[in-house]
Amino acid sequence: MDGERELQKAYESILGSDFEKAIEWFEKAIALEPDYADYHYKLSITYARSNKLEKALNRAKHAVRLEPDNESYRFHLQYLYAREKVQQAEKLLNPINERLDMAIALLKEAIILDPLAIEAYLILGAAYASRQEYHQALSAVNEVLRLDPLHEIASQQITEYKHQLMLQDNIQANSYDQK
């Protein structure tokens, strides 16, 4: 293969924690063999690790176009789409909650794309809690504990959401008693 030397240099750069240099070497390998899907895939992984999601998505899409039957490439692309939806949802969440419905929809899509996306479940729980929908918040965060039983933040959120749910139930009971 023409890009084998460049690939080795990219790996050496990764081992040295120089991801920017690794990106350069992967790009050189791609320049030598533009139709070799694995180079695009590996560059996508490196971009993703460097928090360059848009570039990671572009390379992953290219790898899938070149080898549409490669399950690893398709899974990686799906994972990146899930990350993108989580990032979009985070941008929509704000104290005013004017775009909360859209954020929740994006988080649900991210979970469909990557059912192991713990961050998506945590944010979804927080979004529901901000709407005072504590049953849904608990459901989302319970999924985190199913995936990672020792997840500290999820445990804290569950305690908080249960407390809020209890307060909400007490307020509703008092309201009913006054009628």
Results as ranks from 00 to 15, higher is better:
Ala60Asn: 10
Asn97Thr: 02
Glu133Asp: 06
Gly16Met: 12
Val64Lys: 12
Tyr41Thr: 03
Ala56Tyr: 09
Lys52Trp: 14
Ile153Asn: 12
Leu80Gly: 07
Glu27Ser: 05
Asp69Asn: 15
Ala127Glu: 01
Leu107Asn: 11
Ser139Leu: 10
Leu32Cys: 00
Glu152Asp: 14
Glu67Asn: 12
Ala105Glu: 11
Lys85Ala: 15
Gln168Ser: 14
Ala48Phe: 02
Tyr11Lys: 10
Ala117Ser: 13
Tyr134Arg: 00
Tyr176Met: 02
Met1Arg: 14
Gln88Ile: 00
Ala110Cys: 03
Ser17His: 04
His40Lys: 09
Asp148Ile: 02
Pro95Arg: 14
Glu20Met: 01
Gln87Met: 11
Glu54Tyr: 15
Tyr128Trp: 03
Phe26Ile: 03
Leu66Ala: 03
Glu4Phe: 05
Lys179Val: 04
Ser175Lys: 15
Leu116Phe: 15
Ile158Trp: 05
Ala89Pro: 11
Tyr79Val: 04
Ala22Leu: 01
Leu138Arg: 15
Glu67Tyr: 09
Lys21Val: 05
Asp148Glu: 08
Gln178Asp: 05
Arg99Glu: 15
Ser155Lys: 15
Ile171Cys: 09
Glu152Ile: 09
Ser130Phe: 01
Lys9Tyr: 05
Ala31Ile: 00
Gln136Val: 02
Val86Phe: 02
Leu53Ser: 06
Gln164His: 04
Ala10Gly: 08
Thr46Phe: 02
Tyr121Phe: 09
Gln8Ala: 13
Ala37Met: 00
Leu92Gly: 13
Ile45Gln: 10
Leu107Arg: 03
Val141Glu: 07
Pro34Ala: 00
Ala29Tyr: 02
Gln78Trp: 12
Ala126Ser: 12
Leu138Ala: 11
Phe26Leu: 00
Met166Tyr: 08
Asp114Ala: 14
Asn51Gly: 08
Pro34Tyr: 01
His163Glu: 12
Glu71Cys: 01
Glu4Gln: 11
Glu143Gln: 13
Glu67Phe: 03
Asn94Arg: 12
Leu147Gly: 13
Asp169Val: 00
Asn174Val: 04
Leu77Arg: 03
Gln156Thr: 15
Leu80Tyr: 06
Asn58Glu: 07
Ala140Leu: 03
Tyr11Pro: 06
Ala140Gln: 02
Pro68Ile: 01
Lys9Ser: 10
Asp2Gln: 08
Leu147Cys: 07
Glu84Ala: 09
Gly3Trp: 06
Leu93Arg: 10
Met102Gly: 12
Asp69Val: 11
Tyr176Trp: 14
Phe75Pro: 08
Ile153Lys: 13
Gln132Asn: 08
Ala129Asp: 00
Asp169Gly: 05
Tyr39Ala: 04
Ile23Lys: 11
Leu145Phe: 09
Ala117Tyr: 15
Glu54Phe: 11
Tyr81Asp: 05
Arg59Val: 12
Ala126Ile: 08
Asn94Phe: 04
Leu165Arg: 07
Gln172Leu: 10
Asp148Phe: 10
Ala37Phe: 10
Ala48Cys: 06
His76Asp: 07
